[in-house]
Nucleic acid binder design. Structure first.
Lengths: 142, 142
DNA sequence: GTTTACCTTTACGTAAACGTCAATACCTGG
DNA sequence: CCAGGTATTGACGTTTACGTAAAGGTAAAC
């Protein structure tokens, strides 16, 4: 028999509440088995949960995540179905990549600002420091 | 005189509604000048707006964004203030980088699945294709 | 002069993603 | 046999991030 988990075990492991996991079930994102009335999660449920939560950390809505998970369910395997799925998949990838560009830009600016703060020892006039860095920040900050 | 914009100009440019921009003002994220009762946005407001919206695309809450923008306002320049700001800045960076890791992993899996879909021409048995790819997907999908 | 096209404020509405009881069921140990 | 702990299903509450009228001000255009 392969390993299984209870709801609170998974909740603890992933740092969410059982309520959250039950909510995802209501939304059809996970479909655990039952032992009597208790939920039993297998490794596939666990993997899906991990996927969902990572998606959430990346900023997706549950609707987004639902769609992406549905992409993995290939349906009946008809050719048109495959083509549509592939198309959606690529759209998602494009979105993800542009999101990564945004993320990189944000990281860049924050890292830059970090360096500014590191350079700035008490006594150094602000103007001088700011001159050392490019003007982008100045346009955002005061 | 440097360039200025109306609310609907910026709204159009950034693909949001004027309501959104006014809401950000209510939250103290932008503080445009006024011409009579009409709002006038300068290049600094514009830059802040761009920053806010990029933050939003990356999945931050407005509270997060507020905090990050406040980091840029260096306060009175006292040393302790600088240190605290630097610390927060670094924490943010850490979070951003772990988010980037999540994003990369998500992109990886989706790209992998894309390749699977591309390989799968009608007639090819599913099992055979799945064997070609690693087992991670199988654990998430059906 | 009035229609059109913006702008404004105030205020209530809403969807998403859970939180938070409440009432109930099921074992397990003393 | 009863308390304690964990499970369940409703059902209503809450926060965030705006949407959506309602009611009006101003200024150019016809």
């Amino acid at each position: 028999m392969s390993q299984t988990w209870t709801i609170s075990e998974l909740a603890k492991e992933f740092g969410v509440t059982p309520r959250t996991i039950r909510f995802y079930e209501d939304e059809g994102l996970v479909t655990p088995q039952r032992d009597g009335q208790n939920r039993i999660y297998d490794s596939r449920d666990r993997a899906r949960l991990a996927w969902i939560l990572r998606g959430r950390r990346v900023g997706f809505t549950l609707a987004d995540i639902t769609e992406m998970l549905n992409l993995y369910d290939l349906g009946d395997g008809r050719e048109t179905q495959r083509v549509v799925t592939l198309e959606k998949c690529r759209d998602r990838l494009t979105a993800l990549e542009s999101q990564r560009a945004d993320l990189d830009a944000t990281i860049d600016e924050l890292a830059n600002f970090c360096r500014l703060l590191e350079d700035w020892k008490a006594g150094t006039p602000l103007d001088e420091i700011r001159r050392k860095h490019n003007a982008k920040l100045r346009s955002v900050a005061e």
